[in-house]
Simulated scan of single mutants.
Amino acid sequence: MSGKSPTAALDRAVETLRRDPDPLTRLDSVRRARERLEQLEAEAVRDARAAGATWKSIGALYGLSKQGAQQRFGTEPRGDG
C-alpha cells in the first residue's frame, strides 16, 4: 500500500508546492493549503469527539494534556476524561 496512503499523497503535494519557482505563488499556495488542512483538522476533531474519543486521547496525538487539547480545539459540554 506504499505510496497510496493519504499521507503519501499529501507528501507528494507538498513536494510539488516546494518546487514552485515563484516564492509569492508558493507562499500563497502554502497559505491556502494550511487553511484547508486546519479546517480538515477541526472537522476530524469534531468527528473523533462524536465517535466517543476523549480529549485525553486527542491530546495524546499532539503531545498535549486533556486541557491543552480542549484549549486548542475548543470545548463542548460533555463529561469525559
Rank of each mutant, 00 (worst) to 15 (best):
A33T: 08
R32E: 11
R19I: 01
G59C: 11
P6Q: 12
E41T: 02
Y62D: 11
K4E: 06
A48V: 01
R46K: 01
A9M: 13
Q39E: 12
R18P: 04
D11C: 04
Q70F: 03
D47E: 04
D47M: 10
P6L: 14
T25P: 06
V45Y: 00
R26L: 07
A53Y: 01
R12L: 07
G59E: 02
R31D: 14
P21A: 08
Q70W: 03
A33V: 13
R26E: 03
Q70C: 01
E15N: 12
V14I: 10
T7N: 13
E15I: 04
P23M: 08
V30L: 14
D11I: 04
G52C: 09
R26M: 09
P23Y: 11
T16S: 03
K56Y: 01
R26Q: 12
V30Q: 05
A44I: 12
R49M: 00
A60P: 06
A13C: 15
R36S: 15
V30I: 13
V45P: 00
D47A: 11
R49Q: 00
R19C: 07
R26I: 04
G63C: 03
Q70D: 00
V14F: 08
A42N: 02
D20M: 14
R32P: 04
K56P: 02
L24V: 14
D22E: 13
D20F: 10
D11L: 12
L27E: 13
D20R: 14
A13E: 14
R36L: 15
P23E: 07
F73G: 00
D28P: 02
T25E: 08
G63L: 02
P21F: 06
L64S: 02
